[in-house]
Every structure is written in C-alpha cells, then in structure tokens.
Design a protein around this nucleic acid. Structure first.
Lengths: 152, 152
DNA sequence: GTTCGTGCAAATACTTTGCAAGTCG
DNA sequence: CGACTTGCAAAGTATTTGCACGAAC
C-alpha cells in the first residue's frame, strides 16, 4: 500500500467520512499517473478501469481529498484545473507562455527555501508546488530567430 | 514609469500589437493592487476609474499580457483564477486547505533554488511562483483542539 | 487606408446543487 | 438503522467566439 493510500485510510474516520470505491479509484489513477491530470483525464481513466463514476462525484471527491491534504490542485494555463498527489516530493511545473505546454518535474532538494519560508510565514506547511513561467526550448528558438530577422 | 509599463511599450510593436487604454488600465490596476486579483475584482476596479471595459476585452487582454510575460495567472482554490504582475520578486501563495483563505507574500531571496533549477530544467525561465498548501494558524489551532478532544 | 482591438450578444465549457436511491459502518 | 455518498438532471458560473463598428499606426 502506498503512502497516500495509508493516509487516506487513517484520515477518513477522523473526519467522519467513508471509504468508497470511487475515492479509491481516484487515488489509484493519480498514483499511476505520476503527474497532474485534468478532470477530463481523470474521468477518462476512471471510466476505463471500472463501473462509471459520475462527474459530480469526481468533483466532490477531488475537493475532499484536496482538503484532506492528499491531493493538490493546480490551474495551469491552457490545461484548466489539474490534480496531482501531494506527496513528499517538491513538484515543479514549467509552463511555456508561448505554446502553453506544461512539463512536470519532481525535485528532491529545495536548497534553503524551506527554512527561509518557515521563518517568515505564519503557516503550517503541508506541501509545496512551484510554477515556472517562461519559454520551452523549442519556442525559445523560434523566438530568437524572429528577433534576429527583425534586427537585420 | 514602472518597469512593467516600460516592458509593455517596448514589447508591443515587436509582436505587431497596439497600445490601448484598456490594456494600460489593466496594468495600472494590477500595479496598484500589489497582489493577485480575480477577473471580477479586476473588472470592478477598472469600471470604477474610467469608461466601462467589457468582460471579453479583459479576458482577451489578461491572456495577451500573460503570454507577453507581464502577468502571471494563478488558480487558487476558492478564489478562482487570479492575475498578478510578473515582476522580479518571488511570489508565494499560502493556501489554507481548511478555510481556503489565501495569503500573498513576496520573497527577495530564494536560496539556491534558482541555480538548482537551471541545472536540471531545459527551459528559459521567466518568473517563478510558489504555492504552499497547509493550514493557516487559525485553522491549525481549531484542528489541534479537535484532535486532542478525540483522543481524550 | 489597413490592420488590430473592442463591445455586444450568443454559444460553450465548466462546476455546483437538490434530491431520491444506494452504501458503509 | 442512521449517516454519508452517489448519480442524475437541472441550475449556476465562468470563459470563449463571431461579427460589425471604432481606434491605432
């Protein structure tokens, strides 16, 4: 059993909530995905492995699991709202401001960021996610070419 | 003239686009706000200083300015999509997973994070935003109390 | 004058909600 | 059993689009 599944079992009774197939499927799909999924992708994958789960149930449960701290939601331009496991790793999203593609990355070290943060922020930290905006290598090339033509 | 306004003037002709009152108002409102604003808040503030700007224009322009790298969009749970200036500072959002309140924070140093990132990511970095999920101090207190009662 | 931008209204897409029936503990 | 969940359909929000008119260069 994975770390997140264990937390799920442990936390549910504490808030007076129940273990259901639908919730387990959500977690399972996100574990297998190893990254962020939109509501649409989640729904597709859940439908493909088992009895249908209604959209509203998915919406209700991603919210519940997010509030329990098991998932994290990210709205990424061009992709809509997405969800991913809120595990111990540090999640980074690279968003290209030209083609809107998104790359997911997990880092294992954060340098001194965390300790700096704890000092200045009055907050009980659960998990962290970094969004980097800029240009993917491919768009950056196109852009550079355009610029040099313009100057010529 | 602010840094962002200067970039705005410089960049526009490069992409064959024009300077309009509506776009200037958007930037101005966001500069004065010193933080993130929802589309709704943006609209309110723009209406209050000048001739009405239509919603669709606002949507079109936040997208344009985001793609130009002048703004950054953040979807924050409970607040919907928000926009803020993508300036040289490092933006941090603290999101409480219980009450969904969001606190905005600007940091001046990132420790070694940036250099680590440059090493591993094939990407031309524009700006960075960190989202911290956890509990605000007030919700954390309530939660702790609940937990200790349960154990008693 | 030509190209780009805006406003309006309509079309889409996305998300939430009420309620009866089904499940979990 | 009683409390919590689900599915469905309907309501509510949020966002995008087409097109005629107006503005910038």
């Amino acid at each position: 059993m994975t770390e997140q599944a264990k937390k799920y079992e442990t936390l549910l009774p504490h808030v007076g909530q129940r273990k259901t197939v639908q919730r387990q499927m959500l977690l399972q799909v996100l574990e297998e995905a190893e990254g962020h999924l939109t509501i649409e992708q989640l729904t597709e994958r859940i439908q493909s492995i088992s009895p249908p789960v209604s959209l509203s149930t998915i919406y209700r449960n991603v919210e519940l699991l997010t509030d329990m701290g098991l998932l994290r939601s990210n709205h990424l331009p061009g992709e809509g709202n997405t969800y991913e496991l809120a595990d111990e790793k540090f999640h980074v999203h690279l968003v290209c401001q030209s083609c809107h593609s998104v790359t997911h990355l997990k880092m294992h070290q954060l340098g001194t960021l965390l300790t700096d943060l704890v000092e200045i922020a009055p907050f009980h930290i659960g998990s962290l996610a970094l969004t980097v905006t800029g240009y993917c290598t491919s768009c950056w090339h196109h852009l550079s070419e355009k610029m040099s033509k313009r100057e010529a």
